[in-house]
Design a binder for these strands. Sequence first.
DNA 1: GCTGATATTTGCGCCAGCGCAAAGAACGGA
DNA 2: TCCGTTCTTTGCGCTGGCGCAAATATCAGC
Lengths: 236, 236
Amino acid sequence: MTFMNISSKDLKQVVVFQHATDDDLDLILKNSITRSIEEGGYFFMQGDEATYLYILTSGQVKLMQSNPHGQQVNLRTIYPWQMFGALGAVRSDDAAYPASAQTLEDSTALALPSLFLRSMLETRPYLSFDLMNLMTSYIQEMQARYRELATERVEQRVANALIRLAGQTGARSGKEAGIELSLSRQDVAEMTGTTLYTVSRLLSEWERQGILKTGREKISILQPHELVRIADGQEK
Amino acid sequence: MTFMNISSKDLKQVVVFQHATDDDLDLILKNSITRSIEEGGYFFMQGDEATYLYILTSGQVKLMQSNPHGQQVNLRTIYPWQMFGALGAVRSDDAAYPASAQTLEDSTALALPSLFLRSMLETRPYLSFDLMNLMTSYIQEMQARYRELATERVEQRVANALIRLAGQTGARSGKEAGIELSLSRQDVAEMTGTTLYTVSRLLSEWERQGILKTGREKISILQPHELVRIADGQEK
DNA sequence: GCTGATATTTGCGCCAGCGCAAAGAACGGA
DNA sequence: TCCGTTCTTTGCGCTGGCGCAAATATCAGC
């Protein structure tokens, strides 16, 4: 990638740093290094010692967790100026990443030593506060998705996932006649706890109904309200 | 219940307060009130404004979340000296409880105003730190359970739930020849995202195999290692 | 010890969703 | 433009788990 100089101003976009002073941002910059990982590579693997936390500056990163038998689920996708790998930074005891971070495209991130963040937290309450805010939103989202997985049928979960994704990336790409998403059937399956076959069948059906258009690693949502209806469980 | 006087010493048992000074503990006590709820009642309902956070002093509380159609899942069970309802305290914007807190038996809790905790956090980094530690453990647990729900079969999930419960309550009741659990089939179903029928069938089968003994709202685990084997997916 | 309420078990039928397999489509590199 | 790789679609068969319904067990209060 082309060389990019990160300024402290850029760091203001990071939610956790929104209340940070300029001095603090400079301090953060000075103590961090840049890491670039090519598409398909990993910033870290589940179980690695959590020595760094990251702030994505370009690209896209998928956080996922796998069980002992290798099956995996997608926990979330990280976009630029979002923080990831922060959980390990706070835990004093078992500081291991609970998930793996794989790049979906060539990506670059700022790597900040966990110990450094810990030291900053001790004297900067506003930082703790913003970080806690981030954590609570994670918890709430995970709880909601857990309930979804436990109580809703596959079509509802897939519809919900598409709506969520549209909300995230739609906000960043403007809205044309159809919100574009770039992900494979496999990705959607891992996000919703189903299989790529079932996702494929659902998307085909929805395309037949004109709710969306599909392509290779591409989904264009034409009638978001129809997806909302399906997600609500009002079948037919 | 009999009248119980909570001292600041008791509060030391609360994980989030483990590093608090005695003065702080006194301050917390002075600013909190006691609430008792009878079995089946609610400390708060999902969606209520999160004006208080609670520390359970006696009894047992079930945290659960329901979807718009009324189906519900159990997120966790709270035992004495654990904190609950803390998420809302941190969020400045939408301070609503993301779950409901129902008592499983007559229970009493210390209620601490969210705003008061917020003010304490601002000047006491160690408190923020301990609270963040609690949050990260929540996140990790939810992620693990989410993955479990997405990738594992019902028998594995039920076996896992029993193991977890045995670990929690077994630690508090000593280990005899058989770890006793007190919960209904419905409870187990809501914890594992299945139905009471399936749970009943599984338990009957396991009883036949001598792995456990069952009763009305009672499960005695006789061979924990067998459950572990099932949870690992090494069927037969 | 009765009685109503609540919890549990189990037979039975059913279907949502899984997953193999094979064919087709889209892409990227040379 | 051709070729290999990767992604997607769809037919087909199967089964894990759901959920009704009805019988049975257990408990709490009187």
